[in-house]
C-alpha cells in the first residue's frame, strides 16, 4: 500500500561507511526520522500525486489552450519537486529511524537566483556524484576553455542520459549545459542586478526544461513549448483550464509556499516562541497528517460503479 522507495538521494559507501559499523539509536533520532518521513510521504501523496492527476488530465484533454499548457507546465514543475524531494525526505527519515544520517538532496531549488544555483540545490547527490566521478576526472575547469566546454557537455549529456534513454532527456541535459555556460561566461553579471528578474528567469527556464523532460518525445516537447507561446493553434483560454485552475488552486498555492523555506521558518519561530506548545502540537499534527495520507492512499483504489453499458 505504501509507495516503494525507488528514489532518493544517492548514498555513497564512503558517506555511511562509519555509520554502518557504529550508529546511535535514540528517541530523538527516531522522532526526527518520523517527522521527516511523514512530511516526505505527505509531499508525495498529498501534493505531488494531486498535481500528477492534473498533468494527466491535461494530457488527455481535448480542450487545451495556451493557459492550460502553462498550468500543466507549472503543475509538473511543482509535481516533480514534491515527488522527488518527498521520496528523498522519506529515505532520509527512514535512515534516521535506523540511526543513519544521509546527506540532503534538495535545498529549496525553486528559490534559486541562477541556473547554476538551481543545480546546487536540486538533486544535490547526483550533482556531486557527476562532479566527483566525471567532471573532476575530466579535468574540471582547470583546463583550456575548449576542454572545459567539453567537460560540461559530457557531464550534462550524461546527466540527461541518467534520467532516461530518450532524446528528450539528452536535450534536457544539454539545455542546462548551454545555460550554465552562458551564465558563467556572460549572464551572471546581469543576473546579480535584480532579485525579482533573476528569479523569474530561473523559474521560466526550469519550467521549460521540465516540459522537455516530461514529454513523450521531442516532437511532443516542441508542440507543447510552441503551444505555450501561442503557436499551437489552440485558443488562449478554455473552459477546462478555468475549471482545473479552480480545482487545484489551493494545492498549487500550498505547493508554491511549500517549495520555499517559509513553512520551515514559521515552525522554527513557533518552536522558539513557545516550545512547550510546539512540542504538544507536533505529535497531534503528525498523527493527523499520517491518517490523512493513509486516507488518500486507501482512496487510491476507489473504483466507481460503472453504469452498465450496451
Amino acid at each position: 500500500m505504501f509507495p516503494q522507495l525507488i528514489a532518493g538521494p544517492i548514498v555513497r559507501y564512503s558517506d555511511i561507511e562509519k555509520q554502518l559499523k557504529s550508529r546511535n539509536h535514540n528517541f530523538e533520532m527516531a522522532a526526527q526520522g518520523i517527522r521527516r518521513f511523514v512530511f516526505g510521504l505527505g509531499k508525495k501523496v498529498l501534493i505531488a500525486d494531486a498535481l500528477g492527476e492534473l498533468c494527466e488530465t491535461f494530457k488527455l484533454s481535448d480542450d487545451k489552450s495556451v493557459l492550460f499548457y502553462w498550468l500543466y507546465a507549472i503543475a509538473y514543475t511543482l509535481q516533480i519537486y514534491f515527488d522527488f524531494s518527498g521520496y528523498s525526505d522519506m529515505a532520509i527519515g527512514m535512515g534516521k529511524m535506523f540511526g543513519f544520517e544521509f546527506l540532503e538532496n534538495f535545498d529549496y531549488p525553486y528559490i534559486s537566483g541562477s541556473v547554476t544555483e538551481f543545480w546546487r540545490r536540486w538533486h544535490m547527490s547526483l550533482g556531486s556524484w557527476f562532479r566527483d566521478y566525471v567532471y573532476i576526472p575530466l579535468g574540471g575547469n582547470r583546463v583550456s576553455k575548449i576542454k572545459w566546454f567539453r567537460n560540461i557537455f559530457v557531464v550534462w549529456f550524461l546527466t540527461g542520459f541518467w534520467h532516461g534513454a530518450a532524446w528528450n532527456f539528452i536535450v534536457w541535459g544539454l539545455y542546462f549545459a548551454v545555460l550554465l555556460m552562458l551564465e558563467k561566461l556572460w549572464l551572471k553579471k546581469y543576473l546579480d542586478k535584480s532579485k525579482v528578474l533573476r528569479h523569474v528567469y530561473v523559474m521560466f527556464l526550469v519550467i521549460i526544461s521540465f516540459v522537455i523532460f516530461n514529454a513523450a518525445d521531442m516532437g511532443e516537447a516542441a508542440r507543447y513549448i510552441a503551444s505555450m507561446f501561442g503557436f499551437g493553434n489552440v485558443p488562449v483560454f478554455s473552459a477546462e483550464w478555468l475549471y482545473y485552475l479552480r480545482n487545484y488552486a489551493v494545492v498549487i498555492i500550498l505547493a508554491i509556499i511549500g517549495a520555499t523555506p517559509l513553512p520551515k521558518k514559521l515552525v522554527s519561530k513557533l518552536s522558539e516562541k513557545n516550545e512547550k506548545f510546539a512540542n504538544t502540537i507536533e505529535p497531534v499534527v503528525l498523527i493527523g497528517m499520517m491518517l490523512v495520507i493513509t486516507a488518500y492512499l486507501v482512496d487510491g483504489s476507489f473504483e466507481a460503479f460503472l453504469y452498465f453499458r450496451f
Binding site: 528517541f27 530523538e28 527516531a30 522522532a31 518520523i34 517527522r35 511523514v38 516550545e275 512540542n279 504538544t280 507536533e282 505529535p283 503528525l286 498523527i287 499520517m290
Partner: peptide, 12 residues
C-alpha cells in the same frame, strides 16, 4: 522535547 520524542515515536 524529550517527552515529545518518546510520545511521537510510541504513537506512530
Amino acid at each position: 522535547t524529550k517527552v515529545k520524542n518518546i510520545v511521537l515515536t510510541v504513537l506512530m
